[in-house]
């Protein structure tokens, strides 16, 4: 049991590393981006996740990319959405796998390089990995 916290720490570090690689070293601020996740997911195999970013989505002011992470999965990377000025609104939805109760994280990067973050905890009844 003693090594479990270390494992958790290792996962957290790689989540931070993934965020830093995405933001090119900038520390993201809270707000602007918002995650839409269920509070409780009965089946971790398919958890609906939506993300929306407050942005005018014009040619000079738009959201480039949104990174979705799950910090308790064996590999925290989930998906990356790439938007363009033609997206109209920066919103996307998908369905993801969650191995256990954990935080889902969305990091948004704007075309000017500014970065924003949102986190939501999702309680998982049946894990969505292994088997």
């Amino acid at each position: 049991l003693a090594f479990l916290p270390r494992l958790a720490l290792a996962a957290a570090q790689s989540t931070d590393e993934a965020i830093m690689a995405f933001t090119k070293g900038a520390t993201p601020t809270e707000g602007t981006v918002s995650l839409d996740t269920p509070e409780i997911a009965e089946n971790g195999n398919t958890v609906p996740v939506g993300v929306s970013v407050d942005s005018p989505m014009t040619a000079d002011n738009y959201v480039e990319s949104v990174l979705i992470l799950a910090d308790g999965n064996p590999n925290p990377a989930v998906a990356t959405f790439h938007f363009t000025a033609l997206s109209g609104v920066a919103e996307a939805k998908t369905r993801i796998r969650l191995a256990k109760t954990q935080n889902v994280i969305a990091v948004a990067r704007m075309n000017d390089g500014s970065v924003f973050i949102d986190r939501k905890e999702v309680k998982v009844t049946i894990g969505g990995c292994g088997g």
Partner: peptide, 12 residues
């Protein structure tokens, strides 16, 4: 207009 990179954590 839109692309998405997916990792194994995306559902079947």
């Amino acid at each position: 207009v839109f692309t998405c990179d997916m990792d194994p954590a995306v559902s079947a």
